[in-house]
Amino acid sequence: MNMKGCDKLVDVGRRQFLRGSVMATAGAAATTVLSSNEAKARPAPARVEYPSNRLANVSQLKPNEPLDITYPDKSSPGVLIKLGTRVPGGVGPAGDIVAFSTLCPHKGFPLNYVAGDKTLTCPGHYSVFDCEKGGLQVLGQSTQNLPQFTLRVAANGDIFAEGVDELIYGRLSNVL
């Protein structure tokens, strides 16, 4: 898939994100029946609200060929990979589809996919992350394992990203 098409998918996701947020706020106001001033004083939820973004359709993925995506927004690059073998956290009919941030959590260098090892590696400081093991850092200087995007596959094969399990490099909130 080319980058342009990929971006389009993300745009769809962003629109859904915006719409979803607005709806959530409205819903909260409706159920608590508070004035707008008091509603502002409500504590924020413990975790950030992640958008549900469509990344691709299962049919578009080829085994061991990473697809560039972004999540939870356009400035956060990642990859969607059909690994070819069932892995913990994998989705899809074969349980082998995963997605990760491709900003190295050490210093933010863009990671490269090594198809032979099914790892993402960092040209900056040589960190290696295992895509088959939830982004476990095999060796390297990051103090986190690689942020993985939580995926859901709809009945029609559309793949949605709906969460992140670690802090993405370069942002102090996963959703900006």
Binding site: P88, L111, N112, Y113, V114, G116, D117, T119, L120, T121, C122, P123, Y126, S127, V128, D130, E132, K133, G134, L136, V138, L139
Partner: peptide, 13 residues
Amino acid sequence: KHLSFKSQEYKMG
């Protein structure tokens, strides 16, 4: 069981 036993050597993608 959750561990990686892959090569710890950096390789370019």
